[in-house]
């Protein structure tokens, strides 16, 4: 055990200000696994939400069972099941290779995330007055056209804020993939620790997770600001819209007022 006096600031200094190539790779793995899993999770959630509203009962049952299972069991169990039951391939995209463990993590996290996103997307769609769908249909638009052009664009305002929180969670949850041997941020810290038994490695990695989630907070504020701005775009001059759209700090300040 180290007391605070024996705290090895040097390790933290090195890990924060002099990241090496191995660390950079681990950071990159965390970022792309998070982004791909979230995007795929949103897609799965949308499909499940539409199935939930289907006229065809088996679709509704399937959607209900999906959410029941994947929200009702630990993501770690899901991850290990997919890891042990399927031998997922290495994806080689020329300059970018996705290792088997990363693909396994992406598959498990996407499916898990889809179950949560289904509820968020359904709540978003439910929040839109049913007169909107009727108006679109009565103009001769198909269900798909009405969804894409009328319902989902309006539902997005309700869906985006919780979606942002889900992504914040996702970036942290990717650390679980360390347990199936994926070399991501946490694995990199654990490796440092196992060679030195210095807990400071975990402080350093916590700092890097904070960097990711804080950066995302700004991006999210920017996106939400844009959505709000488009709602009353005519209140702002073109210059103000540009500032609101391109300056996250400015957008943040406006949001705080």
């Amino acid at each position: 055990m180290h007391g605070l006096v024996a705290f090895d600031w040097h390790v933290i200094w090195l890990r924060v200000f002099h990241p090496n190539g191995v660390f950079a790779r681990a950071l990159w793995v965390t970022i792309y696994v998070s982004i791909i899993s979230q995007v795929a999770g949103v897609a799965l959630g949308l499909i499940a939400a539409l199935m939930r509203m289907s006229q065809f009962p088996p679709f509704r049952w399937l959607s209900a069972i999906y959410v029941w299972i994947f929200r009702g069991t630990p993501v770690l169990v899901q991850l290990f099941f997919i890891y042990t039951a399927f031998n997922l391939p290495i994806i080689n995209l020329g300059i970018w290779t996705i290792p088997s463990e990363a693909l396994t993590a992406i598959v498990a996290l996407s499916i898990n995330e889809g179950a949560y996103m289904r509820e968020i997307i359904r709540a978003g769609i439910d929040s839109i007055d049913k007169g909107q769908m009727e108006a679109a249909k009565s103009l001769g638009m198909s269900y798909g056209q009405a969804m894409r052009r009328i319902i989902l664009p309006q539902a997005a305002r309700v869906i985006i804020p919780p979606l942002g929180n889900e992504f914040n969670n996702m970036m942290k949850t990717t650390s679980l993939a360390y347990t199936i041997g994926l070399y991501e941020l946490f694995a990199d810290a654990e490796q440092g620790y196992s060679q030195t038994f210095l807990s400071e490695y975990f402080i350093a990695v916590a700092f890097w997770y904070l960097v990711l989630t804080t950066a995302w907070t700004f991006v999210q504020a920017w996106i939400e600001r844009r959505l709000a701005a488009s709602e009353r775009a005519d209140d702002l001059t073109f210059r103000e819209q540009l500032i609101a759209a391109w300056n996250p700090v400015n957008a943040w300040a406006r949001g705080a007022r």
Partner: peptide, 10 residues
């Protein structure tokens, strides 16, 4: 045409 207009607000 509906009582509640149902214009597309976006």
């Amino acid at each position: 045409v509906f009582q509640a207009y149902n214009l597309f607000p976006h």
